[in-house]
Design a protein around this nucleic acid. Structure first.
Lengths: 200, 200
DNA sequence: GACTACCTACCAATCGTTAGGTAGATTGCA
DNA sequence: TGCAATCTACCTAACGATTGGTAGGTAGTC
């Protein structure tokens, strides 16, 4: 299952709106929101710059739409495995690592909202609210998995699920950022390794 | 001891070059490098925009100088406490938390290099090298503290110092970013709490 | 005839940067 | 010591490029 957009990127039949969203997301994840321009998107998608406005009223609106879609894909997939009776909480935690690993392997991407958090004050109130909501929902999901896993005897850890969820989320977000900056592939793998040990 | 610049910000006698560096650093930490403009810096410092070029040949040069100063302040302070015979490795680790806590308390700052990591691909090769070097030196310091602390019986933990150093660095960088995005003060405090528990 | 999905041709604003000038302090030398 | 030359730290004015965004037109589809 593909989690975070861009799956049909090279198919010319994909509708323009989706290709704009895909390209914008990729540019934000690699270069950041402020460094992403309509001109750059238009060149990649193969349309003219003002045509983007036909699909998204403003750059902030486009940014909002990118986050909303990302939120829906990401959390949708996580909730899917959470409520799958054939999957354990440990399965869910392992599945949770995969998008981070995908970003890390795909070269130079970080989590969309991790990139946006770095330029948070320049985003405008609506995009800020979307980023905030993503992290909150994200953290809630992780906490539920940890709580359920502990109750089921799958996980063993001290402290609260809430604290540990915050730690894991922070560590993975930071791990991706540091990994890209240092170019060290193991940065993220080491973080995940420590997380695994921390719940058993 | 002040670690990260800006200490004499409101004194009019501070030389212009330092005030430009202070303002640029603050703007990068709050809004990001791409969203920071010469115009904005000039207005805050109280000079005209082209005068900045007299002190820094380009925006990338200014960015490089900001990172270099930050690196020197940060790592200098950390190495100071590392080699202080009156301070334990646990003291050093606690001291290491203070700049993160300061950023978190000062409202909406994140670590300079954490912000820059989010827009890494838009920074140009020289700034990228500075960010990379900062994280590498940073991680090395943490690893040394953990190794020395374990050898001295101050810390107890499984796995390698290297892995744990990577985890702590990532978690604190990510913690600051998520904290700003969610507005939750406890985000960073919880991360630090888990780190404390993890070495004892 | 209305709607969708584009286009061309602009717009004002802002970007980093350059050119060239000036006031004042510092320096080199007779 | 006196004076010219140089240097420092700014300034005003403007540069070309790029930014997000607007206006208005067109070809094709429902």
């Amino acid at each position: 299952m593909v989690i975070c957009g861009k799956e049909r990127y090279n198919e010319p039949m994909t509708d323009t709106r989706t290709r704009i969203l895909d390209t914008a997301q990729e540019l934000i994840q690699t270069r950041g929101f402020c460094a992403m321009s309509f001109q750059h998107i238009a060149e990649i998608v193969g349309i003219k710059k003002p045509s983007i406005i036909h699909h998204f009223a403003s750059k902030f609106e486009l940014g909002k739409a990118v986050i909303q879609r990302y939120h829906q894909y990401f959390l949708g997939a996580m909730q899917g495995i959470q409520h799958d009776p054939n999957k354990s909480n440990r399965d869910a935690l392992e599945f949770y690592f995969t998008p981070y690993l995908d970003f890390g392997e795909s070269g130079d991407k970080v989590c969309l909202c991790g990139a946006l958090a770095g330029e948070f004050m320049a985003l405008g109130p609506e995009m800020q609210a979307e980023v905030r909501e993503f992290f909150a929902a994200h953290e809630r999901w992780l906490e539920e998995i940890l709580t359920a896993g502990k109750a089921a005897g799958e996980f063993r850890f001290g402290g609260t699920s809430h604290q540990l969820a915050r730690m894991f989320l922070s560590a993975l977000q930071g791990g991706l950022l540091v990994k890209r900056a240092t170019g060290s592939t193991h940065q993220l793998l080491d973080v995940i390794d420590v997380i695994r040990k921390q719940v058993h």
